[in-house]
């Protein structure tokens, strides 16, 4: 039997009536926490062209969060900036290559990632279902805030042009890209690949591949908790954020993605609020979503929407 067209699948995600209030309260709680950011040079990773820094900042629940921050040595502020969000199991990117192209670049490491896991470490597998029975304790509550606070950190840096911040990432990084574009209106451009955390309960039906298999495993062991799980996930499903997106955005998916099924990619793309959006659906590709070939598309997209750095006197932080 031929596979139904994944573009026709739709979604079972529903938006809780108090979704916006829930996130407004979290944002208010987070806003009351000073970043207390520290920026420490990392000479070992720096090059003649790029300065590398390790950043730490405060976030929800008293956690200290890390990130890699890279700046071109030859720069005239303010800089166009690209934030790279990490996948579920991948290590946070150290984005020296972007800084070498003239961008300020930040590799985010939300809680649980290495260097941000001293106080919170649910593990992999583990994060997707950690404290999932209550939206106020669910692991992704703080994880999302950690990601959003990267933008808050960048806004406070004098060398950054806060009107030219782009966000990107694949899989979980794709999800966080959509989240940041939705929740931080100053984001100028977003490029998301194979977005995870979108249509989560649908994906758990469509695939047996990790990380979504964590949901299947959890509900096999605790079937009586399914309704609670659904209720929690509705507050975190990326579907329910993306209608807020107003910036130009490109999304790429693989039609043979066994990790984040194409059905969920199509569905979340449809719900993105801006009309300045474009979907690249690659036949013959899995969860890589043709990252190998699509990189040039992303590069051109950011060049168009973030612009190139102007030559000028070097600055430093």
């Amino acid at each position: 039997m031929p596979r139904p067209n994944p573009a026709d699948y739709g979604t079972s995600v529903t938006k809780p009536a108090d979704f916006d209030d829930f996130w407004a309260a979290i944002e208010a709680q987070a806003a009351a926490i000073p970043l207390n950011a520290t920026i420490t040079p990392v000479h070992l990773r720096s090059t003649p062209d790029v300065e590398v820094f390790e950043v730490h900042y405060d976030s929800l629940d008293g956690l200290r969060i890390a990130g890699w921050y890279c700046l071109p040595r030859q720069r005239s502020g303010p800089l166009p900036t690209i934030v790279v969000f990490p996948g579920y199991v991948s290590e946070p990117t150290l984005p020296k290559n972007l800084a070498a192209q003239g961008y300020a670049a930040f590799g985010a490491a939300p809680r649980g990632k290495l260097r941000s896991n001293a106080q919170y470490n649910p593990g992999y597998p583990g994060l997707l279902v950690h404290n999932i029975l209550d939206r106020n304790t669910y692991g992704y509550r703080g994880f999302y805030v950690d990601a959003l606070r990267v933008i808050d950190f960048l806004d406070a840096q004098p060398e950054i042009d806060s009107q030219r911040i782009g966000v990107t990432g694949g899989s979980q990084g794709g999800a966080l890209t959509l989240l940041a574009a939705a929740m931080r209106p100053q984001i100028a451009a977003a490029a998301a690949g194979a977005p995870y955390l979108a249509g989560m309960m649908d994906a758990a039906v469509l695939t047996h591949t990790t990380p979504y298999e964590e949901l299947v495993e959890y509900l096999r062991l605790y079937p009586e908790r399914e309704q609670q799980v659904r209720e929690t996930l509705a507050y975190f499903d990326i579907h329910n954020f993306v209608e807020r997106i107003r910036c130009p955005i490109i999304v790429h998916i693989g039609l043979q993605d066994d990790v984040c099924p194409a059905e969920t990619g199509y569905a979340v793309y449809e719900r993105i609020g801006t009309e300045q959006k474009k979907l690249y659906a690659y036949d013959g590709y899995g969860h890589d979503s043709n990252g190998y070939g699509h990189g040039a598309v992303i590069d051109a997209f950011f060049r168009e929407h973030l612009g190139q750095q102007l030559a000028g006197s070097p600055t430093s932080i």
């Binding site: 693989g254 993605d257 013959g284 590709y285 899995g286 890589d288 043709n290």
Partner: peptide, 9 residues
């Protein structure tokens, strides 16, 4: 490698 997790997989 086809640089495709699907085809390589």
């Amino acid at each position: 490698s086809a640089h495709s997790s699907y085809r390589d997989g």
